[in-house]
């Protein structure tokens, strides 16, 4: 009933996907159905290799739905569109662009006003804490810093929805905690609808408004959890640990 109060923005209607190739069919996604409301932080949480990346690609319009449909504000997603921003696990930064070049890439290719773009980029460079690195190339940055650029790049294009595909998957534990805090911080300042994929339970509970637990391949929705702990959350508070136990058990039951 609460959906009446807030605006619904993205809906995933009964989506399925099977890959055909090498003489066999691999069913990756089976009847996934969920809605996301505006400025909600949704975490898609499931075991590794369960088809989460495929789901993100379909949400982004980079992969077709086989059955069902995905729509953004009642408009069907048929291809890549700039009001959906993606943050990749591999960062997918353009190595030949500087930090600024990467962050300004979206507005630039969409022929946005140059001065405006520069100001936006400055704002986000500051927000993700990369001041002083504007003219560095990605190869000179650490993994965490690269992902900061990735996040800033997605934000700078001003998307309605941000899709994040295990953005911190390649980082070491220490950096990961730092990045989770940073992301939370950014999100608090620049509210946006986020769909975040991960296989890390702590990360999921730390960031999510709602966790959608997926089963192993073919992925389907096992259970949903609303996380209503106050932010910023404490990794070792009893409530946090309790949730962690509940969700872990639910997940173990799926494997």
């Amino acid at each position: 009933m609460e959906h009446n109060a807030v605006k619904q923005i993205l809906s995933c209607r009964d989506v399925s996907k099977t890959f055909y190739g090498d003489g066999k069919c691999t069913e990756v996604i089976r009847h996934i159905d969920f809605d996301v409301t505006e400025n909600e932080f949704v975490v898609l949480f499931g075991p590794g290799q369960c088809g989460k990346t495929t789901l993100i690609k379909m949400l982004a319009g980079l992969e077709e739905c086989e059955e069902g449909s995905i729509s953004l504000e009642n408009e069907k997603i048929t291809g890549p569109r700039p009001d959906l921003g993606v943050v990749y696990q591999t960062t997918a930064l353009f190595p030949w662009c500087t930090v600024r070049g990467n962050i300004e890439f979206g507005p630039k290719v969409r022929n946005k006003d140059k001065k405006e773009t520069r100001k936006r980029a400055d704002h986000f460079i500051d927000l993700v804490g990369l001041k002083g690195f504007e003219d560095s190339y990605p190869k000179a940055l650490s993994g965490g810093m690269r992902q900061r650029v990735g996040i800033a790049r997605a934000y700078c294009n001003d998307p309605r929805v941000l899709l994040m595909d295990e953005p911190f998957g390649h980082l070491d534990a220490q950096t990961r905690y730092m990045m989770e805090e940073a992301l939370e911080n950014i999100w608090q300042k620049e509210k946006r609808t986020v769909i975040f994929v991960t296989n890390n339970i702590e990360e999921a509970i730390y960031l999510a408004d709602r966790i959608i637990l997926l089963t192993n391949r073919p992925a389907s929705i096992k259970q949903e959890f609303k996380i209503e702990l106050p932010r910023p959350r404490d990794y070792v508070s009893p409530e946090f640990l309790k949730l962690r136990e509940i969700i872990t058990q639910a997940m173990d039951a799926t494997v």
Partner: peptide, 8 residues
């Protein structure tokens, strides 16, 4: 599914 695979 099998049909689709063949088609593909």
């Amino acid at each position: 599914k099998q049909q689709k695979l063949l088609e593909h």
